[in-house]
Design a protein around this nucleic acid. Sequence first.
DNA 1: ATGACGGTGTGGCACCGA
Length: 259
Amino acid sequence: MKLATWNVNSLAVRLPQLLEWLNAHPVDAIVLQETKLTDDRFPHAELQAEGWQARYFGQKTYNGVALLSRDPATDVVHNIPGFDDDQARVIAGTVAGPLGPMRVIGAYFPNGQAPGSDKFAYKMRWQDALHDWVRSELSQHPQLVLMGDFNVAPEDRDVYDPVAWAGQIHCTPEERAQFQRLLALGLVDAFRRFEQPPKSWSWWDYRNLAFRKNQGLRIDHILVSPSLASRVRACHIDKAPRKNERPSDHAPVVVELAD
DNA sequence: ATGACGGTGTGGCACCGA
């Protein structure tokens, strides 16, 4: 079973690239971030024509998330229950698979702007709420995957220039501690289960020829529940779509689970 | 220190992302 996450930075612009990628890289389910579409504009017909059932939760201009699967996801949740939020950042659903029902949570963590800002405080509150909710989801769904754009580079090896980025947004001790709190729930970073090429990133700035210079961050992650950890067969970042004309600034991340 | 690139909105630029 294969699962993926991709911050597409506007699904309206990236739909052709998404469909092309899904054709070349069949997955059982994928979560998308930054769709930037209200639900009435979501391209469910185009996706359905390609065999995808879509669950989506969007808004105008910013944010927006979706969960695509071959069979329609059930028990769908929008945003973090009990956490009042006017930003569309989370979609969760249960997807049928060879391993039985799989709880899939797709998340677009707040950017946070800068330490000390209001947006940073929101990012911390949001992550507190996510942590507590994921803990309760884990108690009900032993087979759970939390994936998306975390906007956190967990360690210095996830940053192209850790000295320059020290204490900067995505790299602050507070954000990294929040990431560790998720791991403390028993979740496992699938990417780090394996030897990986050094300088593996999932995001490169559009500016300064960052992709060509391979200056990026690993901020898109796939965390799996304890009962899935031993089933993780592979996890990789697919840089190829970043070479497209008009690419997203993020690359998809893929995990393969043994049936 | 700033802006650089790209997306969106009701635009002629501002805001936001990371």
